[in-house]
């Protein structure tokens, strides 16, 4: 068993009835189960930590993951207002931190039953980043700025100053799971990850409309000329 406090942790995530419904669905989701089982079956220990009101640098945070050491530590703040008001945001944060955990355990536990495609990266291990990796926008290497804007986007709890620390492929995995949970439970709403995806990939202006109108006018002119 690679988790410390698993039962206490899962119970601690359920601070409202809607959170309870979403968490139950999350832990039965096929994609999330692959992630959770990979972590659970790895010999490296992950301490699961519920921290209501988690505050770092004066900002209340969604959660976090501490890795690279002897044990991992996965931290969730279930009472952050965004988590209470939208239980899908809580599921989003849990998946996000689990992505960090999988990356942390990859060297210890290898690629057997590895739950991700190879294009999922976290900011600190992304081979496409050229300068020293950092999620602080003002410290990012100028060579990386476009890449970080296009493939990462804003951090959740401090979007003005920080980049989010998992890439677009990881964010799309979260979106896929959240969409399924929303359909299953009828609870909650789209999360900041959806908003981030839309900001990174704004819908193109509807060129089809204008081209269609133009063609229609040409057709009318043609008909008028013929008649």
């Amino acid at each position: 068993m690679a988790f410390e406090n698993e039962t206490t942790f899962i119970d601690g995530l359920k601070t409202t009835p809607d959170q309870e419904a979403v968490i139950d669905a999350l832990f039965n989701d096929p994609d999330f189960k692959k992630i959770w089982d990979y972590l659970k079956n790895c010999q490296k220990v992950i301490v699961l930590d519920i921290r209501p009101g988690l505050t770092i640098d004066g900002v209340e945070r969604f959660g976090g993951y501490s890795g690279g050491g002897r044990r991992g530590r996965l931290i969730i703040n279930p009472t952050k207002p965004e988590h209470v008001n939208n239980p899908m945001e809580l599921a989003d944060t849990i998946i996000h931190e689990c992505i960090h955990a999988v990356m942390d355990l990859r060297d210890d536990c290898g690629y057997t039953d590895y739950p991700f495609s190879r294009d999922i990266h976290e900011l600190y291990n992304d081979p496409n980043i050229q300068g020293p990796p950092t999620n602080e926008k003002e410290d990012a290497d100028p060579r990386d700025k476009d890449y970080l804007d296009n493939h990462y986007g804003d951090g959740a709890s401090n979007p003005d100053d920080e980049y989010i620390d998992i890439n677009d492929h990881a964010q799309r995995l979260i979106i896929r799971i959240i969409r399924r949970l929303m359909t299953q439970t009828g609870k909650g709403d789209e999360t900041l990850t959806f908003e981030n995806e839309r900001k990174r990939n704004p819908k193109p202006k509807n060129k089809g409309c204008c081209a269609g109108v133009f063609l229609f006018l040409i057709a009318i002119a043609f008909v008028v000329l013929v008649l």
Partner: peptide, 11 residues
């Protein structure tokens, strides 16, 4: 109890 050297990623 223990000292360590770790990454810390905060959301």
């Amino acid at each position: 109890k223990e000292t360590d050297f770790v990454t810390l990623m905060i959301s």
